[in-house]
């Protein structure tokens, strides 16, 4: 059964259509990702789903309820972690959780939740003294304290250092299988790749792709790319002659080769035959990042082209993700 059902959602600010006919549904217990570049309309979409904004068209139901008709029953079902939402500096972690627990009929036990989120030691720490990662975990805790069936988490890891980011991811992995449905907003592909069961990519207010993260990455099947340090100089033509190889270049000492799925073994075998060994080998799979870039820059023709002018800025800008992609490193 779908917990979230969105059909033809539209939101207009003045002349600008920020969300333009977005439709998708999320199953119970799923971790569902909404991806897209800054200003694509992600936050506006989830704020319409969360009943924080009035939609201008379409239908939305969350657990059978319409967010436009929000009452306390709706708020008890849905927890929302907002982008850039702080707490008073001198409120301690446990005080915040106790306060928010008092709003709900059947809240989680605050102490237990802190334990699970790795904040037990910070129980009595003031909000202002928490690290960025701890603040985000507290924010997640506040979204979950009411025992919601659905939690919306918006740009959870933006601005966190890599270690803190991994902490938050681990936490969300732990939540998988507890029955909570998570709607994750991100412009950060590694996050989606690691956590989400399914994702949609939004650009200029429209869905331009919907798939599993793996499916999406595979859909832009680019060449596989390998690079290595040859033990001795060799003639590049040897590799160019191989059927699996599409291109070979030397960048400094390193050779960079692209080609089919079999390119790595073909290259290694060919060089081995000439007595050259392959050092510091690195093979990059096409990642969700590649798919994302291809989709949002229009290299791969999307379902709808999307108007190119007037970048909508319906959400506060966050730092662009300038992280390196290649996760798949063979040693």
């Amino acid at each position: 059964m779908s917990v979230i059902e969105v059909t033809g959602l539209r939101k207009v600010y003045g002349e600008r259509t920020v969300v333009d006919g977005v439709s998708f549904s999320v199953e119970a217990g799923e971790i569902f990702g909404i991806l897209g570049p800054n200003g694509a309309g992600k936050t506006t979409t989830v704020e319409c789903i969360g009943g924080l904004r009035q939609r201008d068209g379409g239908r939305v139901t969350v657990a059978g309820m319409d967010p436009a008709n929000e009452g306390s029953a709706f708020r008890e079902v849905l927890g929302i972690q907002l982008q850039e939402s702080r707490l008073p500096d001198k409120m301690s972690v446990i005080e915040a959780l106790d306060l928010y627990a008092s709003f709900y009929p059947k809240p989680h036990d605050p102490g237990e939740l802190l334990e699970r989120l790795g904040l037990a030691e910070q129980r009595k720490t003031y909000f202002a003294k928490l690290s960025g990662g701890q603040k985000q975990r507290l924010s997640v805790a506040l979204a979950l304290i009411g025992n919601p069936r659905v939690a919306i988490l918006d740009e959870l890891t933006t601005g966190l250092d890599p270690a803190a980011r991994r902490d938050v991811w681990d936490l969300l992995e732990d939540l998988r299988g507890t029955g909570v449905t998570l709607l994750l907003v991100s412009h950060f592909m590694e996050e989606a790749e690691r956590l989400c069961d399914r994702v949609i990519v939004i650009d200029h207010g429209r869905i331009i792709a919907a798939d599993t993260p793996e499916g999406l990455a595979a859909s832009v099947q680019a060449d596989q790319r390998m690079s290595f340090l040859p033990s001795a100089p060799f003639d590049l033509a040897v590799l160019r002659a191989l059927p699996d190889v599409h291109s070979v270049v030397l960048t400094g000492e390193r050779a960079v080769v692209t080609g089919t799925d079999n390119v790595a073994s073909a290259v290694i075998i060919a060089l081995h035959g000439r007595g050259i060994s392959v050092g510091k080998l690195r093979v990059d799979q096409p990642s969700l990042d590649d798919a994302f870039v291809a989709l949002t820059t229009g290299n791969e023709p999307p379902l709808t082209p999307g108007e190119s002018s007037a970048e909508p800025s319906g959400e506060p800008s966050a730092e662009p993700s300038g992280e390196p992609s290649g996760e798949a490193v063979a040693r």
Binding site: G50, L52, S72, R75, E76, L78, G79, I80, L82, E84, S85, R86, L87, P88, Y100, F103, Y104, L142, A143, G146
Partner: peptide, 12 residues
């Protein structure tokens, strides 16, 4: 600080 907006997401 977004405290009021965060409260909007709760039943209170």
């Amino acid at each position: 600080m977004g405290v009021l907006k965060r409260l909007r997401t709760t039943p209170v």
